[in-house]
Design a protein around this nucleic acid. Structure first.
Lengths: 206, 206
DNA sequence: TCATTAATGCGACAGTTGCTGCATTAAGGT
DNA sequence: ACCTTAATGCAGCAACTGTCGCATTAATGA
């Protein structure tokens, strides 16, 4: 039955080669994707453009990442979380202010804004499989920020029964909404108001 | 100088033909665009697909709407506002609940969700000129909903000095954010909570 | 070190997309 | 009714996109 000596199951297992050249290609491609997205945006993300920037043949890109959304979602895994760090200033007010400040900085700086835009564009263009990856990405991103809230509960600043998601909605949803959908300005008082709204939401018992 | 008999300015004016065949083509194309977006989404919006659906030559589409975002932004003008009507139930609580309910229905129904998705995709792909059109679209959409708040002020339900945009942010931003960005569920209690948050924001003096 | 074969590079191909002359049609003014 | 010419239809083109077969390279296990 199995032409292979090892008995790992009913079917022959395709032995993937995860190290060496394949890994080098992967790193180069992911770097090229991020570079292109930051510099020129999602519209410039072509398989051949990535291939050229990574010094890899375009057929290789097509074989490992058949669609553009897959390129983006795969890059998300490598994306370090230092884009929006979770602060620890000692007070919930300071934490929320610092966090939203990071988000707004990310959404304002051209390079990272294009990056965020691309994530959004990919999630629209991508099929359901990619959507799952992206949902995981956000879940992880949020679970990190939830620690911020739990610390405040430990300090007695917030009630124990919190709707974590509701608070983060109040804090960051308007920023994303204005940046990419309604395209209204996100100024200084807008930021303060969102922090206030998040705090008000946090005081509401679940 | 001027080969034309009429003296309308220094240069000859190109006499556009706004009626007759041109208008019929325009109506057919706009209908085809909306049909395609609702049925198959932004990815299926090809010039040739629109041309086929509208029984018009594809060169005509290219000449009058050179890019896909222009097709979408032009369709927005025709889009009747009955997608998200501004309610008048008699109380601010009822109005906000009904309004958010309409927004969520629009974001949940497949056809209209794809329509909203397409607007977003076009605003990302489109150049700055298109962005202006889309900003106007949202401005008009919001100005309609502001009347809802002004009626509440007239009834004495809300303080006179309101930050209209802040209230609408609290009401609808989380819905858009969860639908297209964080992809979290938008359930029954989510809706109630957003209305509560918007009311709390409304009670805050500007 | 050697054999196996997954992964890549290379070249070519059909299908699609964006665009452009040119002939034809019909809208708008006289 | 007639003229001018804007707008459309038609045909064809270069550029780009996605895919494939085949030769070559090198990762992995023995």
């Amino acid at each position: 039955m199995s032409s292979s000596g090892s008995e790992l199951g009913e079917f022959d297992r395709v032995r993937e080669r995860r190290g060496g050249r394949s890994e080098r290609v992967r790193v180069a491609v992911m770097g090229a994707v991020r570079q292109i997205l930051q510099d020129s945006g999602y519209g410039a993300l072509t398989h051949r453009a990535v291939a050229a920037a990574a010094y890899v043949d375009n057929a290789t890109i097509y074989r490992r990442w058949p669609t553009r959304p897959q390129l983006v979602s795969d890059m998300l895994r490598d994306l370090s979380s230092d884009l929006v760090p979770v602060p620890d200033t000692g007070s919930i007010n300071g934490d929320l202010t610092a966090y939203l400040s990071s988000v707004l900085a990310m959404l304002t700086t051209p390079g990272t804004k294009k990056l965020a835009q691309s994530i959004f564009a990919a999630s629209i263009e991508g099929d359901d499989v990619v959507a799952v990856v992206l949902a995981d990405f956000w879940q992880e991103r949020f679970s990190g920020s939830y620690k911020m809230l739990d610390r405040a509960i430990g300090r007695g600043e917030l009630p124990a029964m919190l709707d974590h998601a509701a608070i983060m909605d109040a804090l960051v949803a308007p920023a994303w909404f204005r940046t990419f959908i309604s395209r209204m300005p996100v100024g200084e008082e807008f930021q303060k108001r969102c922090v206030m709204a998040a705090l008000a939401q946090a005081q509401t018992e679940k």
